[in-house]
Design a protein around this nucleic acid. Structure first.
Lengths: 220, 220
DNA sequence: GTCTATAGATTGATAGAC
DNA sequence: GTCTATCAATCTATAGAC
């Protein structure tokens, strides 16, 4: 990479506090690599060497961008927190309950298939006792879940859903959808090559949606 | 501990290849401690020091019983593998489908509440790519799941269950029940102190059973 | 069987040349 | 910004006294 040429093209009057183009690129490469490593082995089980190798740079160079291992970890986590809340946030109190939950479950399954590393990153963090995101869990996440549980509770009390415990319904949706990311190795060991083949995602969605939605559909 | 007295009482003509009483006791203490540590941080994230401290013995003494870290890990895993298969194995093809699945889900929820560390141990191992139990997953576990999926498929074709994909139903049951062990920290952050209180387990079981069983009950 | 001491390897992080 | 070299801490595992 020719650094001088790269920056000279894009940056006029570069502010010292603004990240340069090469900084932004390298930070992005590092965070991608860090996600791959942390999502498999967790924070304690991962090494800076592993991340540096996967990012294709030397360890000291990586530590030039993020001074300490926990800084990389914090950056990776923060990048994924918002994406984690988005699907549940979009659950619309004014929509049709079954259709809203169908959309939510579908969205979570898509996320699980497209960004399984993000799911595994959180799984590892929570298994380890959530030392880094304990605050997030008990504030932002808790508030969001309480709000959406109230919405589901409202739907139930209006008779638009079968009488279900909203919190446990949310947990079941999380568990089931994230299972396909977190336990991917196990799913593959049992189902074999069909995992990842064209129709598998649709088949999974159909099966999961059928059971859960039938389970909460209001009954006459 | 007075070793001589202990063994003299219980062992007559002790065979050199048989573990002595103190050996059995210490191995048990070590495995309990190792389960606690490995289930939180996984294999790579755990240290022999941590296990030794929790077991209340020195590191060299611990390594007298299990020569290497991976030997301890293998022993802990093997101890829990059978208990892991047992509930699914007991799914009876000749029983009533809904009642059999109710029993299975209840059993898994009990296990999740009573031995959450075992669940977290597997979760960590599978997240890490199942380096130690990959063989178990693709042989014993796969065979068992295929057999029980066939049973569920039979129930479906007889019209005794709604048309569900047996494998995905099993995955959903695993995911949902194990969620309460694996993501305990998150569940506690959201639900607060009610987790662990007297009625919580029953409330959870009621909610989970209601959704899943209603979701697969045959419809006229 | 249990301990202290320590070897040998890995790891997080820094120094300093370019 | 990137590299080689290296320090200091941690970690697995062993040696050897008791």
């Amino acid at each position: 990479m020719d650094v001088k040429t790269e920056t000279a093209v894009d940056s006029l009057a570069e502010d010292e506090r603004q990240p340069t183009r090469i900084q932004a690129i390298n930070r992005g490469i590092i965070l991608d690599a860090a996600l791959d490593v942390f999502s498999v082995h967790g924070f304690k089980g991962s090494t800076v060497d592993q991340i540096a190798e996967r990012a294709g740079m030397s360890k000291p160079n990586l530590l030039y961008y993020y001074r300490r291992k926990r800084d990389i970890y914090a950056a990776v986590l923060e990048l994924t927190l918002d994406a984690w809340l988005a699907p549940l946030e979009s659950l619309d109190p004014d929509g049709d309950p079954i259709e809203e939950l169908r959309r939510y479950i579908s969205k979570k399954l898509e996320l699980s298939a497209e960004r399984p590393e993000a799911s595994r990153l959180f799984a590892n963090e929570i298994l380890a006792g959530a030392p880094a995101i304990g605050g997030f869990l008990s504030t932002r996440l808790k508030r969001l879940v309480q709000a959406k549980a109230a919405v589901i509770g409202q739907w139930v009390s209006e008779g638009r859903l079968a009488p279900v415990d909203p919190h446990h319904l949310i947990f079941m949706i999380w568990a089931t959808t994230q299972h396909y990311a977190d336990f991917d190795v196990q799913v593959r060991a049992i189902l074999g090559e069909q995992v990842g083949k064209p129709g598998f995602r649709e088949q999974t969605a159909q099966a999961v949606l059928s059971i859960i939605l039938n389970g909460i559909r209001p009954r006459p």
